[in-house]
Design a protein around this nucleic acid. Structure first.
Lengths: 154, 154
DNA sequence: GGATATTGCTCAGTATGCTGACTATCAGTA
DNA sequence: TACTGATAGTCAGCATACTGAGCAATATCC
């Protein structure tokens, strides 16, 4: 039987496991309580004010059933708001709050530090190459998950 | 703000997301119902008969609180057995069943096919390099998660 | 215009993965 | 031996992720 270390699936799981742990630790050290998933959602709402949940999900490749809970928690923390859309009564338009903007600004150094730490075993050149290869593999497999990335016009 | 595609944490999440989806699809096509996590646990039990749960967790870098549920489901499916250890009354010794062995054997082609598919965007050389870089980054970050890999003598 | 299909969102259920707490047991030491 | 600390396992609680179902609203096609 092959070793676990020869299984890309196992390596993917381990790397993601470490990435999440590092992110949470850095963010908590900075005095905040925000998950990687919540951070990505909040940053994307800020960059695309008024977008609906399906569009948000497509921009960060989350499942639509996952995004509901994520936004619930962002709203509960006072970082985002959810309003019914006037153009489409099925849709909810998302907005970042002032508090959300403030949080994003203050949390940025911790997020960047986390990205460095999770690659600390690699040289700058290796880190760049790892990201290139991940991007390439992900692009080829994009449609294989239930929540593919969608290039949406907002 | 940096693009998501420049964040190793985001790429890690996407790659893992695709890896799990591909694994489940291939395994289901082969007529089985086993998650990546359950597969790794079962294969490790087979390779180390009689090991206890903490040792198993260390060998595949699972949290000890996660492994309880995973083994529950393997036992429930009749693929593994959990017996109290005679040497240490706190510990449970794990064994694979004949049914578990049969399942592992029949499922192997699907698992290998899944590993190929999740790297289908890369050349053989690139795939090898991606795995090398992941292994290196993981080794450097091993202690940063609550469930690090442990090199245990069984 | 009306039937049909599609879309946005939610919900119930299941499976990881973690934190923190707890029990039972074991190991080391005074 | 009694005390102390560490260890094996479980549990409650929370946050992703997904499957599949369902509702309401919109879009499409005849």
């Amino acid at each position: 039987m092959k070793d676990n270390n020869d299984m890309p699936g196992h390596l993917a799981r381990r790397f993601q496991q470490i990435a999440v742990a590092v992110f949470l630790a850095e963010v908590e050290d900075a005095g905040f309580d925000l998950t990687p998933v919540q951070y990505a959602a909040l940053a994307t709402i800020k960059a695309n004010p008024g977008l609906d949940q399906v569009t948000l999900a497509g921009l960060i490749a989350y499942d639509r059933t996952t995004i509901t809970g994520v936004i619930d928690r962002l709203v509960q923390k006072g970082l985002a708001e959810r309003h019914p859309s006037s153009r489409d009564r099925r849709a909810r338009e998302l907005q970042i709050t002032d508090e959300g903007r403030r949080t994003l600004r203050k949390i940025t150094p911790a997020v960047e530090s986390a990205q460095r730490i999770m690659l600390r075993g690699l040289s700058a050149k290796e880190a760049e190459e790892l990201m290139r290869l991940l991007r390439k593999a992900i692009a080829a497999g994009n449609e294989l998950s239930r929540a593919p990335l969608r290039d949406v016009q907002v």
